[in-house]
């Protein structure tokens, strides 16, 4: 299981080992090695700390090993996004002083809040997926069952990240328009 506190402690420990400051009196070769190590360590820490980045990295690693990691598009979400896009267009074309415009603004604001909440839920869900993933890694079983479970988890992560991109885009558009 990836323990955030342990991750942080380990990061600081290794930072002290690799930090370029401690190599200032050493040879250029050693300095450049320490700099390289420190950079890798920073990236690794940032990646593991953030579930979104961790999932992206993991999926990149596993892209070749999982068959059909890409799944069918979420039709309901797409309908929702396209509908919202229409409402956004209506709002953009409306006279800001009119009642209709104010009504649209309220609708869009409600949608924005709902989608922000949806984003939060997706992050919670990603945390949950990683708990399952870590548990599976800890169990270390090479059974067919474990393999299926593993692929399922990766697929769910892939879906989640994709949906997050779609939601992010429309939220950004909403924010920019009604701000």
């Amino acid at each position: 299981m990836l323990d955030p506190q342990q991750l942080e402690a380990k990061f600081y420990e290794l930072s002290r080992t690799f930090h370029p400051d401690f190599y200032q009196t050493k040879s250029t070769a050693e300095q450049s090695i320490s700099l390289g190590n420190a950079a890798v360590l920073n990236t690794a820490y940032r990646t593991l700390r953030d579930p979104i980045q961790r999932a992206e990295y993991l999926l990149g690693l596993e892209a070749g090993s999982v068959k059909d990691i890409r799944t069918s598009p979420p039709a309901d979400l797409f309908e929702e996004i396209l509908e919202l896009q229409d409402t956004l267009d209506e709002y953009r074309a409306s006279d800001r002083e009119s009642d209709e415009s104010r009504r649209l603004h309220t609708t869009l604001q409600t949608e924005q809040e709902r989608l922000e909440q949806h984003k939060q839920e997706m992050e919670t869900q990603l945390h949950r997926l990683f708990s399952d993933w870590d548990a599976l890694q800890d169990a270390g079983e090479a059974t067919a069952d474990a393999r299926v479970k593993r692929d399922q988890l990766l697929k769910q992560m892939r879906n989640l990240l994709s949906n997050r991109t779609y939601v992010n885009n429309i939220v950004n558009d909403l924010t920019a328009t009604i701000a």
Binding site: P73, L82, L161, T165
Partner: peptide
Amino acid sequence: VGAPECGDVMKLQIKVQNDTIVDAKFKTF
């Protein structure tokens, strides 16, 4: 269809009569 990398969403519809597409519409974000 959608592109998960950039978040683009595309809906394309066809209307078919006697095996011929008589009309088509789209919505793209």
